[in-house]
Amino acid sequence: MSEIERSSFDDENSITSYRTSILQMGFPSEEDEETIREMIHKERQHSPKDDYLERLRSGDLDLNVRNQALDWIRKACEGLQIGPVCICLAVNYLDRFLSVHDLPSGKAWAVQLLAVSCLSLAVKIEDIKVPELIIHLQVGGDPWFVFEAKYVQRMELLVLNVLKWRLRAVTPCSYIRYFLSKIYGDDQEPSSRVISRSLQVIASTTKGIDFLEFRASEIGESEEDW
């Protein structure tokens, strides 16, 4: 596949994922001010604990655990051509989980199992069409371990319980259409390339931890200045 063809595919994949996200999460396609206020109000329910970033920076929480899990999620999404909306959602689950629940110390398999489960749940919420077998989802991330479906399902249930089943999370991607409408005007639809680029920029911020200082709406707004 040429670079032009790949770029076109990525744009289309990102937009399809984004539009699916809006429908799946109950967000209207055209957000009004009241809807945005409701989303901002819900942000804290969909955020890690307030001391999470400080604990990562101080070493109280092992940053390598997050980095390893995130690296696997990104490799899997790249291998399966899963877009940035799903990456942001999986990372949201990962950070919220790690902020309140400890993994077994020094267990690389537990880190990967958590990453697999977070991505699997995000894929289900986003209704992304990927191979149904859990093993296919895992192979996309160049895994060190491959888990049977029953173990992934058990970890998914743990993640669900820890997150209190709040999976329809408000992420920075949720605000893209609203902030772009402020730039382009409500009567002009932003191009697929602009939306795709905005989503990719937002997803790229999750590679580090500095973005955790900001609320989802603040990140969504600031990324429109790229």
Rank of each mutant, 00 (worst) to 15 (best):
M1R: 08
S2H: 09
E5R: 10
E5S: 08
R6F: 06
R6Y: 04
S7A: 11
S7K: 14
S8K: 14
S8I: 05
S8V: 08
F9T: 03
F9I: 04
S14Y: 06
I15T: 06
T16F: 07
S17D: 07
Y18A: 04
T20M: 13
G26M: 10
P28G: 14
S29L: 14
E30L: 12
E31L: 15
D32C: 13
T35H: 12
T35S: 12
R37Q: 14
M39H: 03
M39V: 02
Q45C: 08
Q45W: 04
S47W: 06
D50K: 08
L53C: 03
L53P: 04
E54W: 02
L56W: 03
R57Y: 08
G59W: 08
L61P: 02
D62V: 13
V65P: 02
R66W: 08
R66Y: 11
N67M: 11
N67S: 11
Q68I: 12
A69S: 13
W72V: 05
K75N: 14
E78V: 11
G79H: 05
Q81Y: 11
G83Q: 06
C88Y: 01
V91A: 07
N92A: 13
L94Q: 07
R96P: 14
R96V: 13
P104N: 07
S105G: 00
G106E: 10
K107D: 15
A108N: 12
W109R: 11
A110Q: 08
V111N: 04
L114S: 05
A115F: 07
C118T: 13
L119W: 02
A122D: 07
I125E: 11
I125N: 04
I125M: 10
I128D: 01
I128P: 02
L133V: 08
L133E: 14
L133T: 01
I134G: 00
L137E: 02
Q138G: 04
V139Q: 04
V139A: 11
G141Y: 06
P143F: 09
W144S: 10
W144C: 05
F145Q: 03
F145E: 06
F147M: 05
F147Y: 09
E148F: 14
A149S: 15
K150P: 00
K150G: 00
K150R: 14
Q153P: 00
R154G: 00
L158G: 00
L158F: 01
L160R: 09
V162P: 11
L163V: 07
K164P: 01
R166H: 12
R166Q: 14
L167V: 15
R168N: 10
T171V: 05
T171F: 02
P172D: 04
C173P: 01
C173W: 04
Y175H: 09
Y175F: 15
R177E: 08
Y178Q: 09
F179P: 00
I183F: 06
Y184V: 12
G185W: 10
G185Q: 08
P190K: 12
S191C: 05
S192A: 06
S192L: 03
S196L: 03
R197S: 13
R197V: 01
I202L: 15
K207S: 09
K207V: 14
L212V: 04
A216P: 12
E218H: 09
E224I: 11
E224H: 10
W226K: 06
